[in-house]
Amino acid sequence: MALDKKGIAQRIAQELRDGWYVNLGIGIPTLVANYIPEGIEVEFQSENGVLGMGPFPFEGEEDADLINAGKQTITTMKGASFFDSATSFAMIRGQHVQLTVLGAMEVSENGDIANWKIPGKMVKGMGGAMDLVASADNIIVAMMHSNRAGVSKLLKNCSLPLTGVACVKKVVTDLAVLEIKEGAFHLVERAPGVSVEEIQSKTEGSLIVNGEVPEMSL
């Protein structure tokens, strides 16, 4: 069965390593914070200027001066710090953040990503996404395998305006975990009960399947 959004977040959380600073984008990526594996310590960065982001506040304890990049009210953990936007993006471009997880509308087989603009329809802006994807060493895209119309989001070439070029290394969808290398998607894991054939049929870009593909363990 295909994963739901929580399942995707849960699978991505398995990629976290002790001592990492992690930037989570809006949407599915935000949910990753709910599944930190036991025994490891990670700190979440939000590009509007906080390191050590904690959970949402209790009702009545919201602070208008304390929000995340999604403009949601948050709290901080012990050891948190605040900083200005230039310092925040110095952390990001300077590769001091070990992992970036973000959503996407399209990803191509060479690692291009599009997630900020639908010409003539949606023009909200890129926010920090272009800075994040241009610099991070380790980018995981969290998204559904197909869009609402049933069209594959894993493509030969992105059709939408790009956010970054050849930068995505890993994609976790409701159907699979895929690595991007040498100009192709490499199937690493399948969602429980999802067949290689189904993944193949829903992946427009080149898909490489090597031997038995294990199921994810969640």
Binding site: I67, Q72, T73
Partner: peptide, 11 residues
Amino acid sequence: KRIEQRTTRTK
């Protein structure tokens, strides 16, 4: 000091 997205958790 308007809040754009008021998000909370329950005690």
